[in-house]
Design a protein around this nucleic acid. Structure first.
Lengths: 335, 335
DNA sequence: CTGTTAGCGCGTTCAA
DNA sequence: TTGAACGCGCTAACAG
């Protein structure tokens, strides 16, 4: 097939190990043979066989990423962040998409283990117990992204929805708003629903603003529900001067409704949306952003994973994305 | 480390080769030992070492994907398509993003060769000669996506921009439109610019509609340029009843301008955009689509690559995505 | 400074 | 039906 160490050794008239050392830049071989070896290697277009090397060194320099869906821009962004940092540390990325199906997830955990990846990152909508158990059993360094883990064994990283939502609302308050409405998602969704609402409530409390039930509308994170919710908000007595939506999609919906009602944005009303990276960037590339982009979630995950692989001790098992705010100013979302 | 064939062999009291055969389902070994081997393997949670297997069999079951940017939903979609089909054939995907930089591209071609991937898919904004040359030299089965290749060596697959643009315009014509404007991209861009414009022109000609220079405006594929272009189109004498934009982003921009001018869509004017998957889906998940999704580009690429890997002969070197139309009806893009 | 030897874990003849 | 032996390509420990 392709040229090997042996071939080079034969031509130069030395042993394989000498060639290996020279090619790996290991301490001083005699300059003469060293030079000759490099020459021959180049002229033969020698390409080291990483598979053989992996077998010998028991490490593949490959990270396995288990993800539910790459079409989703949110996941794509995180994936990009992971790849970026992985490259920095000399890792390549194998991606495995599961469609969020447990069966597929288990299948890929096995495949990645067979491939002897150096580490894994698991990011899915849910974190089935069986998957967590299987991941732990592989003994392969693994980091879980954005899901609460049962056991405190696998390190995980999350977006701190409470704190970020808090800061978004705080931002509005500091702009002078007093009547701030919220379009939340399903409050049964602990992270994106309940916790974002919690942050909203906390911010109001801390700034001594009354929490008014009529200023809360629930949606389903999708655009149309935001539009409907906004419609309701506009029809009641206390019309808000600002609205905070739990997803950017709902934020866009809210903008739609507001404009249809003849309101100007942001002159008449400010609308802010929690960035899920689904819409904002696509709709307006010029959009100003505050805080860190979603891809940092991936970057951080990979940084943590790298530490685990290197055997460094982690300060904690549960990390939160150390960011200010992942939102965009709705005023720029105008279409 | 982990349990190997040898371990199992020792316990059962047979040779490694027997274990290997049984575990690989190779012809009949005596049922008794066979069963015992499987038992032991399971109880020891034996996981075959794919790295060793790769070395022995000289195939890794890995496909390398070289891509400029995973954040771009267009590339993400193609990637998803590739992964989907790759999985079907038992391949895993290593992704390498290059930011479109030649240097990085060359670097990754080398890395993937070292990793002895079974095949590669190259998809970038451009196709530098040096990259093409390097790809060919690797002797690894490779398929190029969406770029014209110099040599007729590497098989490639493209979107047929002329034909699709033609069909988009034809669609509008069949809806009864006679004054159809086009917002093109940079005509210096052969594929997305010139060819889409060409399809537009051809369709008009085939249906005996006059080509009017004043109905053509150029943009830069981005939303804002579409808005500006639309503004100009609306200020002249012959106001079009339909507009075809060379990108969905420009289509959205056109919609913006039209609405600001007080036009209702699609009642007053129809707007259609060439789908680049950048905006449409994000802005309106309910959007009706015509034709095949972008991800099919990836699917097809992987199907072709698989044939090459299997050693099947290809009927041709240059493929076109066998689709009708990759567009979306602008009327649903309304925001 | 360099060669020898011994793996890494598995697949695959070729005999037995 | 099964086992022994060798090879895949490279690394690493130990002599020399």
């Amino acid at each position: 097939m392709s040229v090997t160490l042996k071939d080079i050794a034969a031509i130069v008239g030395v042993s394989e190990s000498t060639v290996s050392r020279v090619l790996n830049g290991i301490p001083r071989a005699s300059e003469k043979t060293s030079k000759r070896i490099l020459e021959v290697a180049r002229s033969l277009k020698y390409t080291p066989n990483e598979v053989a090397r992996s077998l010998a060194k028991q490490q593949t320099h490959i990270i396995g990423l288990i993800i539910s869906d790459i079409y989703n821009p949110y996941f794509a962004a995180v994936t990009g962040g992971i790849e970026e940092i992985a490259g920095l540390y000399g890792f390549n990325l194998i991606i495995a998409t599961t469609g969020g199906q447990e069966e597929e997830e288990l299948k890929y955990i096995t495949i990645l283990k067979e491939k002897r990846v150096d580490g894994m990152i698991f990011m899915s909508g849910r974190m089935p117990e069986i998957c967590e158990k299987t991941l732990i059993e592989t003994l392969i360094p693994t980091v879980v992204v954005a899901r609460q883990v049962k056991e405190e064994i696998l390190p995980s990283i999350h977006i701190d929805n409470v704190s970020e939502s808090y800061q978004a609302v705080e931002y509005l308050i500091k702009l002078g708003h007093r009547k701030i409405a919220m379009i939340s998602g399903d409050l049964g969704d602990i992270e994106s629903g309940y916790n974002r609402w919690l942050g909203y409530k906390k911010a109001l409390a801390d700034y001594n603003l009354p929490y008014r039930a009529e200023l809360l509308e629930q949606g389903d994170f999708r655009m149309n529900s935001g539009k409907i919710a906004m419609g309701k908000l506009l029809q009641q007595n206390t019309v808000p001067t600002a609205v905070f939506a739990a997803s950017d999609a709902m934020g866009v919906g809210a903008i739609k409704a507001a404009k249809e009602a003849g309101l100007r944005i942001p002159d008449d009303i400010s609308i802010m949306g929690f960035d899920n990276n689904l819409i904002s960037r696509a709709c307006d590339p010029e959009l100003t952003t505050i805080g860190q982009p979603v891809k940092d979630l991936g970057k951080n995950a990979m940084e943590i994973l790298n530490k685990v692989i290197k055997g460094e001790k982690l300060e904690k098992r549960t990390y939160y994305l150390p960011c200010e705010l992942i939102i965009r100013e709705s005023t720029r979302l105008l279409i």
